[in-house]
Structure formats: C-alpha cells, structure tokens
Amino acid sequence: MSYDKHILWACTAALVTGWVLTYDNGLCSGNVTRHSCNWTCMQLTLQWPGSFCIGLNNKTICQIPQTVSNWTIHGLWPMRTGHCCDCWPVFHSHLQEIEPELIQLWPSFLKGQHYFSFWKEEWIKHGTCAGCEESMGSPVLYFQAAVKLRKLFDIESVLESVGIKTSCDVSYKPEDIRGALTPLLGTDYDLQCVTDSKGREAWMQLKIHLFRNQTLGCHKQEQEEKFNTLAWFNSPAHLCPKNTTIFYVPINYENPHEPCN
C-alpha cells in the first residue's frame, strides 16, 4: 500500500469505526479517543466585519479587506464534544476551484494569516466531524456546503428590506432584528454581541442552528451548552442582551477596532 493510500485508508477507517487516529510524522496511529460522528445539530456562524475587531484584545492584528462589505462565514460547526480526525488533511489545491468565493465569503480578518491557514484550521477543528455526513464528506464538499448556506441566508437583503441599516447613532431593539430574521431563519438562531470601549453592545455574530442535513430548526440544548463551553472559552462574544438596544455598526476599514470613533 502506498504512503498516500495508507493515510487515506486510515482516515476512512477512523470515520467508519468512530475512533480518532492521530496524524503524526505522516502516519495515522493510535485510538486515543472517540470520534464524534453521532452529532445531531450544527451551527452556521456568520460574523459581521464591522464589529469583529472590537472584541480582539490585540487591536493591531485586525484588518478588514476592502473587498469585504457583507456578512462573512466564521464557520460551519457540528455540535459535538468529542475530537475530530487529525489525520484527514486538507491541501490548498483541494480548494482552488472555489477559492474566489471563499476569499469573498470566508475571509480572515487577522493580519499575516493566510486565508488558507484559516480554512485549514476550520477544517481540522470542525470539517472533519462534518465529513461524517455524505454531503460534506470531503474538504471541498464541506466548504461548498458552507458557501451555499451563506448565499441562501441573504441577511443583508432581509435587514435592508425592513430599514435596519448600519449606524453609529441608531440602535435597534433585539426583537426588531428578530422580527426581520425569523421569516428567513425560523426561531432557532442566536444573536451575539461584543461590548465596545463606550459600553455599547455591538452585534457581531449570528449563529444559525441546522440539522446535519442542512435544514433549519435543530436545537439540542444540552449538547449546545457543552459545545459552547468549548467553542467560546475566553471569548468576548456573548448573547446580545434583551434589555437594551444593540448597534449594527458600519465597517470602518481605516479603524476597524473602533468603528464608531
């Protein structure tokens, strides 16, 4: 068996049997923990570039490319607590066909981080678990699924249709934003905010709950709580408060960490 075929066989065996095999010096080895293929729900997490940089501790590392003007993908995350398969690599060549769309819809906002490095991290952390589902059973299928979902959920058009626009002066009640989004997303989604230097709540993320067949409505509370404990450890993002208005801040390319100053 050739070197590459050995790796492919080992990774396939890991997915079928449910065991994780670690990728070490080019070889898959060991069965250190269970691979979580039995997840039910996943989250499509979209982020708003205008407020993304607010939450970073190091303000100097953030930049918003001039080509980005709409909501972008943060990730497509199966809600699981187990480990994904370290031995299922993704290479740049796998994504070249869809790279122009990924650059537009799934960019990195960190200086010095190559886009592919960001995509690779998302594949290793989340995509390899999503790969248990046939429709996402390879790196390119996984990223294509996320892009397709992002295009399906046309957040910008929905908000604009009801007069919700970016502003540093006008804030919105969370129920008004939900009133606009619910016809598109159903009721199982979360608004996440960050707090800016003036104590204002800025809407940063939208987490859309999906079944593994990519349909709306999955909401497994116990599983979600365990997943969020891992995914948001030490993160400044939090559920947008219901008792105050929130800002949908504009993108500030020159000063992204203080978009309203």
Score class of each variant (00 low, 15 high):
A146G: 11
K198D: 08
A10E: 12
G186F: 02
Q221S: 15
R200C: 05
V249H: 08
N31M: 07
L8W: 09
T45M: 09
C28G: 04
N25W: 04
M204D: 12
W203V: 14
S69P: 03
E134V: 05
D4S: 12
S157D: 15
Q144D: 15
A13N: 09
K165L: 14
A130M: 06
I73C: 09
C37H: 03
G30C: 11
Y189L: 08
V20Y: 04
E122H: 01
N228H: 00
V147T: 05
F233S: 13
Q113R: 09
R34E: 14
W19G: 05
Q223A: 15
A202I: 01
R150L: 07
Q43I: 13
C193T: 09
N38Q: 01
W123I: 08
F211L: 11
C11D: 13
S117A: 10
C84A: 10
S108E: 13
D188R: 02
G55P: 01
G186N: 06
T244R: 10
R150A: 13
T187Y: 14
V32I: 12
G18R: 00
S157A: 15
D4H: 07
K165H: 11
N255Y: 05
W119G: 02
L152A: 13
K198S: 13
Y189D: 13
S171L: 02
G179C: 12
C62H: 05
S135E: 15
C193N: 04
H92M: 02
K151I: 06
P65Q: 02
T215I: 02
L76E: 04
I164S: 01
S69A: 15
Q66N: 10
P236F: 06
S69I: 11
Q205D: 14
W123G: 08
H94S: 10
E99T: 11
V162M: 06
I103E: 11
C87Y: 02
